[in-house]
Amino acid sequence: MRGVTIAMLGAALTAAAAGCAAAGARAAAESTLLGAGATAVPLAIGRGNGRPIVIVEGVAADAPPRTLYEVQLEGRGGRRAALGTISFFNESGYGGDGSSAPAARHFDATEALAQLGGEAVAVVFVPSSGVTGVAARPDPAAHARVGRVRVERR
């Protein structure tokens, strides 16, 4: 049986750390940061069978963003229709490092899609205070973000 040297162990740990860093970089690259204004994520929804469900994966933040995010479908020509709201209030995932565990949110897009004539080109996230006439001021240090946005027909 061969012995394991410190150098071999160090090389293995370095390779493992590089793999973890690469995975983290891929996850960050696949995320879209939600800013102080409207943030659009391209999406193609066409006609098909079943109810269209928009799934927003990787909903996370490093700290509470102190705002809601309205989720809207955008059709051709910039018209929008409401899907729902994402709230980070009372997230239980903020740990010692302040981050929340990525989560997924599901939105039935049947009505919104009908309002847009059956086609959508993007999902738009708009900061909202939840009160008409009161501007939303998301905390930029929260780094609120979403991952992949997709559609399933059910």
Rank of each mutant, 00 (worst) to 15 (best):
L33I: 09
V131G: 00
G35S: 13
G130D: 02
V131C: 00
A112K: 01
A7G: 14
V121F: 06
A63K: 14
A16M: 13
G75W: 11
V146G: 02
G50Q: 05
R47I: 00
A18W: 00
S31Y: 05
G77P: 09
A25V: 04
Y94V: 12
A114Q: 15
T5V: 13
C20F: 14
A36D: 11
A28G: 04
P52I: 07
G118F: 15
G75H: 09
P102F: 02
D139C: 00
Y94M: 11
A112E: 08
V123N: 00
A28T: 05
E70W: 03
A103K: 10
G118V: 14
T132I: 13
G35A: 05
A23W: 09
A17Q: 09
R51K: 14
R145P: 01
G35Y: 03
A38L: 03
G118M: 10
A122R: 01
P140R: 02
D97F: 08
I86M: 09
G10A: 14
R150N: 11
G46C: 11
L73W: 02
G133L: 02
T67A: 12
C20M: 09
G10E: 13
V151N: 08
V41R: 15
G48D: 07
E111W: 08
V121L: 05
S100A: 14
A135P: 10
A25R: 11
E70N: 10
G78F: 01
A104K: 12
L68A: 01
T14F: 11
Y94S: 12
T5A: 05
